[in-house]
Structures are given as structure tokens and as C-alpha cells.
Design a protein around this nucleic acid. Structure first.
Length: 769
RNA sequence: GCCGAGGUGGCGAAAUGGUAGACGCACUAGCUUUAGGAGCUAGCGGGAGCAAUCCCGUGUGGGUUCAAGUCCCACCCUCGGCACCA
């Protein structure tokens, strides 16, 4: 027995042309701008996920609120559409990834419209379109020109079954994500981008942002800057030296052995057969998946000399030392390092406790030339090559004479050619390698015969700079117009998942800083994002993560057709704090549905009755207006809904009528959350045009005060009674009234009043002793 | 181990140092001859009591304060991220 038909209302207002205008971000508008960005999705075949629906609903409520507050809001959406699923689907079915992508993108867009997301569709972008990735390629060329991109022999994860190189994120538990075969290590030539050159900038730049603490921490920890020293150890009977990295040069006296990584080049040089076997075994495995807690290692035939005391110590190869950090070699100080102690025990190395000199040895080590100060980072350079088809072609050409040469800018974009087969080649190159007429080209420098790079870019490439493109999505002569970027940047609020707080955010900040140095983004804005907010996670009703295999997936589409868009949006706002992990609960959703019914009834019943209104109604609505505004500002949507419910419950008890103006104010408050019902009620209340272009109401202070307020009276800190006072009552009046209250007087009589604390209108405490 | 976020009814959760549990779900009782996730009224942290009322309650133990879920110290547990990082 619904009091309103959500289907009809939705149909009526879904494509309101006026709203399309309202949702547009206007370049150079005189209103103050706000750039609200929510991560654009990878359009996967399953359609819009409830997680998308949740984070986008929160972002949308916020964007709608800001518009009503009079801001010129940029709230764009697009598609991060390069990726493996479409490619895998193509391998299976032969359907071109672009075709699949176009189809799914349309589906997503439809579903987003049904959720009433107020995106500015005029600015829609798609990372797979040549007019977009032209600029992704352009950025790569600039990186190459500035010496920040080069080819390097790199060990990669190799799937022997699929004959393909896999990125770390494509290897799950040491197995290929696609076929489940054990992966191995293989060395191939890869494009590498020197993000480490920006390590310090990426840390320092955080000062110019308001990211929440955990996001800043994630960035800093990922970069993990460590100051220490590189110390040189001579190898006995050889000209070779081993450089170790340590943050504790003062423990040099306690060195009992050195350890080098199996990837260290000296392992090969000084290794006997046993060492070779160890290294071989190590390389078969995925480094990330060592389960054994026990440390293993083998001894080299040579020994190292401690520069401090000339002591000869053995050198081991062990996999607990990683080539990725420091120098790939450490000095083993079992008396001061737990891991070294474990290793010494495993290897049967005896050691004694040593006292560390009072004064650090930094100076001595440096002065005597044994070593030098060094900063080391956990952050590694960024492997930028993928041997996949469905990605941006890397715009480089290999010429025997000139080496790697970048494609001239005026030849961009290098369009991804259509292929017949999406299977990888036997050599592990991308399917592009099979297209001879595409690969064979002329060297841009010497005009001689040359070959195109067949690697494509990683998934991150297109999403690194997409927020710039939204400022000016159709520009054909630049990433985006400088003046437009100057107007819209920085992104005021960037909403996304925790999983992107490290890599995506870091890569994207790096690319922005690089573009900043090139002078192609505004010099006024050294950082791209002002604020970063993590959205929460929605679990299945069983409290587990949703997954197709568990069959516990909630589809937003199903929910909206069953209960209506407004109910689903309001429920998602109500279910908990925006950044919390919450389980879906349909009963609770029904509660929200019941509320919306009551709300609708209340407004329609009071509409047009303007006489005999009660002050209490006015007060409730003004109170709502005030606190709801504050909560919306802070993404506290759950309490906004709670307050709307509270107000509605309170108003239902009122016998008189409610003024139309107040009803309208209430409808404006609900508008960002429940846009369809709000619009319908707006019209019922005689409003003109769209409720979404109305100014968010402002509470009138004079209506906020009630005639009486209740004050908790404490005796020795415990609440012993409540008295009704007038807000303007003086301290003396309040104390007198409290003393006359029987319940309180009883406790006061137990002793002498030593002190009275009165906080106006808030608390009264008698200290009795 | 490190970093981050948390620990409040049966459940999801509220609470600028000032009446803990708003709001919702579930539940209980009653009303309404009640068309399909109904509506209305009342109750709903634990204990004692016919009741008024009293005592105890925000992970544990200390502390600051007239007053602590909230601030400080130590510890325990849960979740998320990163980890043999030298």
C-alpha cells in the first residue's frame, strides 16, 4: 500500500533536461568552484557493483549538496577501460575488446543514471579512445625525453603455459591468474620509469595536501625512505668489494658475516656448485611467496675483511636479503639484529655480545673512506611494460643505428591496431608483434628501417592523469587547456578505495609532479589532489566479501527495481559511516523504505495548509536544516538520515499544520539523498523548476530556541535530576530551582555544598562533601 | 614485526569533556477484519523492587577533572594495509 509509486516518479524525473544543465561544471564561472572526483571504474562484465554504487552515492550526495550551497561543481565520470578481462574475453570469444568495452560502458552508464548520479556527462572520458590515449602516449614520450624512461633487463614473472609475462598483481600465490600454472622468473627487456627520482618530492608534497592520516601514512610507508650508509668490505684475495647498506654503522664491530642476495652479481662470480643450485632454486620461486620461516643460505668460498678491525668474516648467499633494497648486501650483526641472529643460529655461526661504541661511527667510516652516507628507498622503479594487447601502445621505435627513438609528437596517437588473434606469441611478446606491417616502420631520426615497440602500457597509465582531462576533455592540442586547469585544479575531494591509496595515488601524484616540472600543468598547484577520502566496503549479508562464487552478491540494479532508487541511496547513506565496513541488510533497507513513505505522506498531507501552524514544527525543521547541513559537509550521511527520521517522527506528533516554506526546506534537505522523491514533492509544494537548483536552506537562529530546555543536574558528578529552565535563566535562578527539586534536595542534604559548577544551559553540578 | 583504523545493547550504530545508547533493525504486549517486505500505541543495556526509586554499566587496569565512551599512560583483542627493508 505504497503512498507513492516510485517507478512513476523515477520515470518522470530521470531525464529532466533542467537537471542536465545543473549538473554541468561551467568553465570559468564566477561562482566558487569545487572539483569532486570519485574514482572511475573499470567497466567489468558484471555491471555496476554495489561497491561502486555505494561510493558514488556518497560522492553524489556531496556534489549535489555543494551545488545547492552555490558552488560551481565539477563532478565527472569516465571509463578506465583498458584491462585484462576484456582481453581474456577476446581470447575466448574472438570479440574485439573495443566492442566488448563499448557495450559494457553503455550498460554502466545506464545503471549510473538509474542511481541518479549527477555526473557531468558532457565530460565523459574513456582511456581506450585514441583521442584520449594520444596524451597518455605523449606523457610517455616526455618521460623518455627527460631520461625518466629507459629499457632494462628485468626479471619478471613468467607463465610457461600461457607463454606470457605477468605483472606482480597478476600472480596470485605464485600462480598465474589466468590459468593457475606455477609461474617462474624470467629476464626480459622492459620499459622502466624512474619514479624513484621523485621519491623525496612525493613525501614532501604531502605537506600541501589534506589527505586523511592513513592515506599519508600509506604513501610514506610505501616510499619508505631510510637514511644510512654504504660501507665497503674488501674481498680477501681479490680486487672485488662488497658494498653493504646499513642504518647502524655503529654496529660495525659486531659484524660476524656478510649476506648477499641470490640476485647479487657476486653470487654468480664467487659461487661454487652448491651456491649455483641455491640460486637456481631461488629463481624458480616467486620471491613474494616464501612461506618458510626458517632462514636458509650457502657460504661463498671467499671471505670479506671488516674495514674497522681487519677481521675476516664469511660471506653467505641467502634469500632473506633482497636485491630490491639498499645494495642487496648486508653486514650480519647477530648480536644486534634478530634476523641476523636467526641466521647465525641456522648456520651455526658463534658470536659474542659486543658493546656498541658510545659515539656513532658515521664520521670515522666516512673519513677513512670505507663508505659514504646513502639514502635508500623501498619504492622501486616502475615497470611500465606489459606484453598484453589491450593497452596503450608504447610510442617507441627501435632503430639499429639510433637505438630507441620516440615517435614524433605529430604522429600521435599510435593507434592500437586490430589483430586477428589475441593470444600471446611464443616469444612472450604481445600479439602486436605478429602484425608485421605495423611493426615495420621507419626510424624517425635516420629514416632507416626500424621496428615499433610491441609492449603496451600498464593499467595505471590511463588513470594517472584522467582528472586533468576532465577539465578539458575534448582538447586536441594539449592534455587540457592551461587556463581551464588553473580554474578547476586542484581536485578538492578525491574519493576512492583503500586499495588505491598507495600505487594509484603515488603514480598519479608522480606523473602530475613530472608534468608540473615540464610546465604543462598550472604552476599554482604543486599537488593534484587537495583531499583524499577513503570510502568504506560493503559486505554481503553474511558478513563476507561478495563474490560470484559464493553466490552472495547484491546487485544494485535488483535493489533499485524492487525498492526504488531513492530508497537504495538513502539506505546506503544510512547504513553506517561513509568509511566503515558494513554488511548489507535488507531489513534495515526496508526500514528506510518505510521512512520515505512516512515522509511522503507527511509532506503531502500538510501541503498547502498554511494556517494554524505550531512553533514546535518550525523549531524542529530549523534544527534539522542546521545540523543536516553540517553533517553533509563532513560526509556524515548516516546521521543526516537519522535526523530526517527524527524530525519526521517529531512532526507527526504535531496537531497543527506546517508552513509550506518549512516543508520546502525539509524537501531541500532530503534532495541530495533522495533526488526523485524530493523533486516530486517540490512540485507538490508548488515549487518551480528543479529542487536541485534551489539554495540549501539556512536555519534561522530565532526559531532554534525553544521556550524551555531541560537541564541535567548532577550531585558529585552523578545525574540526580532534570529541571526545566528558560534558556535565558540566570545562574542564581537555575541553582535555586535545582535546590527546590525534591530528588536533588535529597542528595544535597547528605552534606555541605562545597562548590557549584554551572555551564550555561548545559550542566549544573553540586559538589557535596 | 611496522603503519593505520577500531572495540558502546540481540544487531547496524549515535553522542562540541556535561542526561550513554539518538535513528533504524530485531523482539515483546496491545489496537486496527489487517491483500502480502502493513499501519498505529507502548515497552525494549544488566541487576534489585509491587512501585517510586536505587545500584552497576562504553575491551582491561591506572590517571587527569566538579564531570570521562570522549583527554593522558600501560595492556588485551579485532579489522585493513605493508612486511626477512638491513
Amino acid at each position: 500500500m505504497a503512498s507513492y509509486d516510485f517507478r512513476e516518479i523515477e520515470k518522470k524525473w530521470m531525464d529532466n533536461p533542467e537537471d542536465r544543465d545543473i549538473n554541468r561544471g561551467v568553465d570559468f564561472d564566477k561562482r566558487e568552484k569545487k572539483y569532486v572526483l570519485v574514482e572511475f571504474p573499470y567497466p567489468s562484465g558484471e555491471g555496476l557493483h554495489v561497491g561502486h554504487a555505494f561510493s558514488m552515492t556518497g560522492s553524489d550526495v556531496y556534489a549535489r549538496y555543494l551545488r545547492m550551497k552555490g558552488f560551481n561543481v565539477l563532478f565527472p565520470m569516465g571509463w578506465d577501460a583498458f584491462g585484462l578481462p576484456a582481453e581474456n574475453y577476446a581470447i575466448k570469444t574472438g570479440i574485439q575488446p573495443q566492442v566488448t568495452t563499448d557495450r559494457i560502458t553503455k550498460l554502466f552508464k545506464e545503471q549510473m543514471k538509474r542511481m541518479a548520479f549527477s555526473f557531468d556527462w558532457d565530460r565523459e572520458i574513456n582511456t581506450t579512445l585514441p583521442e584520449y590515449y594520444k596524451w597518455t602516449q605523449w606523457i610517455f614520450i616526455k618521460l623518455f625525453e627527460k631520461g625518466l624512461a629507459h629499457k632494462e633487463e628485468m626479471p619478471i614473472n613468467w607463465c610457461p603455459k600461457d607463454k606470457i609475462g605477468l605483472a606482480n598483481e597478476e600472480v596470485i600465490d605464485g600462480k598465474c591468474e589466468r590459468c593457475g600454472a606455477e609461474t617462474e622468473k624470467r629476464t626480459i627487456s622492459q620499459w622502466v620509469v624512474k619514479i624513484t627520482d621523485y621519491a623525496d618530492r612525493l613525501i614532501d608534497g604531502l605537506k600541501n595536501t589534506d589527505f586523511i592520516e592513513k592515506v599519508k601514512a600509506a604513501q610514506v610507508n610505501w616510499i619508505d625512505r631510510k637514511e644510512g650508509m654504504e660501507i665497503e668490505f674488501l674481498i680477501g684475495g681479490s680486487e672485488e668489494k662488497i658494498r653493504v647498506f646499513t642504518t647502524r654503522p655503529d654496529t660495525l664491530t659486531g659484524v660476524e658475516f656478510l649476506v648477499i642476495s641470490p640476485d647479487h652479481k657476486l653470487a654468480e662470480k664467487f659461487g661454487n656448485d652448491e651456491v649455483k643450485r641455491y640460486v637456481e632454486k631461488y629463481k624458480q620461486r616467486d620471491i613474494k611467496n616464501r612461506e618458510e620461516k626458517q632462514k636458509t643460505g650457502v657460504k661463498l668460498t671467499v671471505r670479506a675483511i671488516n674495514p674497522l678491525n681487519g677481521k675476516e668474516v664469511p660471506i653467505f648467499v641467502a634469500d632473506y636479503v633482497s636485491m630490491d633494497f639498499g645494495t642487496g648486501a648486508i653486514m650480519g650483526v647477530p648480536s644486534h639484529d634478530e634476523r641476523d641472529k636467526d641466521f647465525a643460529k641456522e648456520m651455526g655461526i658463534s658470536f659474542e655480545a659486543v658493546t656498541i661504541p658510545e659515539i656513532g661511527m658515521w664520521g670515522e667510516v666516512v673519513n677513512k673512506g670505507w663508505g659514504k652516507k646513502k639514502v635508500s628507498y623501498h619504492l622501486r622503479d616502475w615497470i611500465f611494460s606489459r606484453q598484453h594487447y589491450w593497452g596503450e601502445p608504447i610510442p617507441m621505435v627501435w632503430c639499429k643505428k639510433d637505438g630507441w627513438v620516440s615517435v614524433p609528437e605529430n604522429e600521435l596517437p599510435i593507434v592500437l591496431p586490430k589483430v586477428e588473434k589475441y593470444q600471446p606469441t611464443d616469444t612472450g611478446e604481445s600479439p602486436l608483434a605478429n602484425i608485421k606491417e605495423w611493426v615495420d616502420t621507419k626510424c624517425p631520426k635516420c629514416g632507416g628501417e626500424a621496428k615499433r615497440e610491441t609492449d603496451t602500457m600498464p593499467n595505471w597509465a590511463g588513470s594517472d592523469w584522467y582528472f586533468l582531462r576532465y577539465c578539458d576533455p575534448k582538447n586536441s592540442s594539449a592534455l587540457a587547456d592551461m587556463e581551464k586547469m588553473k580554474y578547476w585544479l586542484p581536485v578538492d575531494m578525491y574519493i576512492g578505495g583503500d586499495e588505491h591509496n598507495t600505487l594509484h595515488l603515488l603514480y598519479s601524484r608522480f606523473i602530475y609532479q613530472f608534468l608540473f616540472d615540464l610546465g604543462v600543468v598550472p604552476k599554482e598547484h604543486p599537488e593534484p589532489y587537495k583531499k583524499r577520502l577513503s570510502h568504506g566496503v560493503i559486505l554481503a549479508p553474511d558478513g563476507k566479501r561478495m563474490s560470484k562464487s559464493k553466490g552472495n552478491v547484491i546487485a544494485p540494479e535488483e535493489m533499485t527495481s524492487k525498492y526504488g532508487t531513492d530508497v537504495v541511496r538513502m539506505y546506503m547513506s544510512f547504513m553506517g559511516p561513509f568509511d566503515a565496513t558494513m554488511a548489507w541488510n535488507e531489513r534495515s533497507l526496508i526500514g528506510v523504505s518505510r521512512f520515505l513513505e512516512r515522509f511522503y505522506k507527511l509532506v503531502t498531507e500538510h501541503a498547502g495548509k498554511n494556517s494554524g501552524q505550531e512553533m514546535e514544527g518550525k523549531r524542529l525543521i530549523n534544527k534539522l536544516v542546521k545540523s543536516a547541513g553540517e553533517d553533509l559537509e563532513e560526509f556524515k550521511f548516516n546521521t543526516v538520515v537519522a535526523k530526517l527520521m527524527e524530525t519526521t517522527n517529531g512532526l507527526a506528533k504535531i496537531t497543527g499544520s506546517i508552513e509550506n516554506e518549512d516543508l520546502r526546506a525539509m524537501v531541500k534537505v532530503i534532495a541530495p539523498l533522495a533526488p526523485f522523491v524530493a523533486q516530486e514533492l517540490w512540485v507538490v509544494l508548488g515549487g518551480h523548476g528543479s529542487v536541485h537548483s534551489q539554495a540549501f536552506p539556512v536555519a534561522e537562529e530565532k526559531f532554534l530556541v525553544s521556550e524551555f530546555l531541560s537541564l541535567a543536574v548532577q550531585v558529585n558528578g552523578k545525574v540526580r535530576g532534570v529541571i526545566e529552565i528558560k534558556p535565558e535563566a540566570t545562574e542564581e535562578e537555575v541553582i535555586e530551582k535545582a535546590k527546590r527539586e525534591e530528588k536533588i534536595a535529597k542528595f544535597l542534604a547528605e552534606g555541605e555544598i562545597k562548590k557549584v559548577i554551572y555551564i550555561k544551559g548545559k550542566a549544573l553540578n553540586f559538589v557535596v562533601g
